[in-house]
Amino acid sequence: NNLNWLIAQKDIVNIDVQTIAALHKTCASFDDKLNEQRLRPQLEEILQNSNSHFLGPHVESLWQCYLEYSERYELLAKNLQINVDGVTLGEFDFLVHDKHTEQIIHQELAIKFYLGVPYSSGSSTQTYWVGPNQIDRLDIKLRHLN
């Protein structure tokens, strides 16, 4: 059920790139007939090999399983570090080959939960969506993305 929930989620960032839109549409509509029950042994093995109890690595493990057993996508690399002259510049979460479009897709996966906290200012009431700490707010993150 966790994997099905993950695939059905909508992106909060709308990037107008055709391949990303195609990927999301395919995942959301289960075009490749993903069935979590069929994948249960593979999911259990991938999750058992995870060294973390945090939400992010758990979700990355679920996505890895989806990609590895998808009929449409081929997982080329996971957590691929980019090093230049011994310095790590960053990391690709997933590099994926889309077998339908013959494109290579770079995927960054992020998931976070926010708590809605009502805030009154004069005659108006707003809701702040607070993350793990007070300065981690969804409204601030969204302003940075736009």
Rank of each mutant, 00 (worst) to 15 (best):
H58I: 05
D31C: 08
A21C: 08
E45Q: 13
S70T: 06
V84Q: 09
G90F: 07
D11A: 14
Q48D: 04
A21Y: 06
I20A: 11
E45I: 07
H58F: 15
L62A: 09
V59C: 13
H58G: 00
E60G: 07
D11E: 15
G90P: 08
K25R: 15
I82D: 06
N14K: 10
E74M: 10
G86M: 08
G56N: 08
V84M: 07
E36C: 03
I82P: 05
V17A: 13
C27Y: 04
F54G: 02
C65V: 11
H53A: 13
L80W: 11
I12K: 02
N49S: 15
C65A: 15
L34G: 01
D85G: 14
F30C: 11
K78C: 08
N35L: 03
N35P: 02
L80E: 14
E91Q: 12
R72D: 06
L67V: 02
L67T: 01
Q18S: 14
A21G: 11
H58P: 00
P41V: 05
A22K: 11
A77W: 01
V84F: 14
L67F: 05
V13P: 00
H24K: 15
N49T: 08
Y69L: 01
R72F: 03
V59W: 05
Y66P: 05
G86Y: 08
P57Y: 09
Q18C: 06
W63E: 00
N79Q: 12
Q81A: 12
L76C: 06
G90A: 07
Q37W: 10
K78F: 04
I82W: 12
L76Q: 09
Q48T: 06
L23F: 15
F54Q: 14
K33R: 10
E60I: 05
H53C: 08
E68K: 13
W63H: 02
Q18G: 11
L23C: 09
I20D: 10
T19G: 07
V96R: 01
A21M: 09
F94R: 02
V87I: 14
A28F: 04
N35R: 03
G56Q: 08
N51D: 05
A77G: 11
L39Y: 13
N83W: 07
S61W: 01
N51R: 11
Q37P: 00
L34Q: 04
T88L: 07
Q48P: 00
